[in-house]
């Protein structure tokens, strides 16, 4: 094998490897984390976060506007403290509400932000005043069953 041919084939090999990496970067994956510096963090307290995980999306009107960056338990009040990194292009009014929603019946959980009407917006480090917790399927079913049982009892009496 001549030296020039080796150079050519090695160059082709490196190009093919780079092309494979580009394919993995552009077609297969997405930049999940918004670039740092262009986000600001907000917090929200929830009574129950259900199956919410770090890196879960934060959506407003269905558009991904950020990610959950941290979840911890507030040791005084025993509520879950969720920190959200929100894209700084988007501002939300101070009476916005955050709720934990599920995409589909058994899909992943995400945080939905519904904007309010107030003119002042939430600044970095602010907390959502209005939140609603995740719907836990087991609780929902047991509540339904108990209410059915109560109805049955009333009928019999």
């Amino acid at each position: 094998m001549k030296r020039g041919m080796i150079d050519f084939w090695v160059g082709l090999f490196v190009l093919a490897g780079m092309a494979a990496l580009m394919f993995l970067a552009l077609k297969v994956s997405s930049q999940g984390n918004l670039p740092t510096g262009s986000t600001y963090s907000l917090t929200a307290d929830f009574e129950n976060i259900g199956g919410l995980k770090v890196r879960a999306p934060v959506k407003s009107a269905g558009v991904v506007v950020g990610r959950v960056s941290q979840i911890s338990l507030d040791p005084q009040r025993y509520v879950a403290k969720v920190t959200l990194d929100v894209d700084s292009r988007y501002q939300f009014s101070r009476d916005s509400s955050a709720e934990i929603l599920t995409s589909g019946l058994l899909g992943e959980q995400y945080i939905g932000i519904t904007s309010g009407a107030e003119e002042k917006t939430l600044k970095a480090g602010d907390t959502f005043k209005i939140t609603s917790s995740a719907i836990v399927l087991e609780q929902l079913i047991s509540r339904f069953l108990f209410s059915q049982a109560d109805k049955e009892k009333e009928k019999q009496e």
Binding site: L21, L24, A25, K27, V28, S29, S30, Q31, G32, N33
Partner: peptide, 19 residues
């Protein structure tokens, strides 16, 4: 097929860790 894949695969966490 492609959009679900893109939504679930993270470049830094999955692709870079593989590299």
């Amino acid at each position: 097929f492609w959009s679900q894949m893109q939504g679930a695969v993270d470049f830094r966490l999955d692709v870079m860790n593989g590299v």
